[in-house]
Amino acid sequence: MTNREPTPSLRSRLCERTSLQDETLIAAAQQGDAAAFEELVRRHQEGAFRAAFLVLRDADEAEDAAQEGLVKAYKAIRSFRPGHEFRPWLLRIVINQALTMHRSRRRGVAAAERLAVRERPLPHSIDETVIDRERARLVWAALESLREQERVVVYLRYFLNLPERELAEYLGCAQGTVKSRLHRALGKLREVVVQRYPQLLGETT
């Protein structure tokens, strides 16, 4: 074959794909490129799954919610505005999907069972060198007693480590407002703890 300008191999372009910026992939996805969106999902699927898991506290349901939410995100990708943070935009769709499933589940169970749902156990594995298991269980249960939006703010900030900039994007508020929203959520948590889990405010269990 005649040789002209050498081109990078397909394999190296495959590697390049993984180094593409989210913005490039988002632009391609907005043009209908499903493969570009697939790569975006690959990058963000862990966060999406964890967010859904925190809401639903069940791995199978979280998987369903995350998948459904990600498909919805693709359908809505053209509404994503360039220059904004992508992760909070994506997480909002996934979390809304998880919350919808959560509400549906709660509507579908009797009152007694609802209590059982609220008391869903901790994930099977807790590093007890970091926090005592019983204390972890009580904090976990107290968080479940918060209102949806308060709970989600706590999850995003402390469990998914979203910086304030992205949290502001998620909440649709100024960055300066994020601290007060977090403080308000923690204040509500304190009220719950005082009423239901006062031992958390005593000596370390």
Partner: peptide, 23 residues
């Protein structure tokens, strides 16, 4: 502080591979 400790101690289930399924 407790929430921060819990977030560090919790072992999330392994995230499933969703990319190909979503595609």
């Amino acid at each position: 502080r407790d929430i921060t400790l819990l977030s560090r101690a919790i072992a999330f289930p392994e995230a499933p591979s969703l990319a190909s399924r979503v595609r």
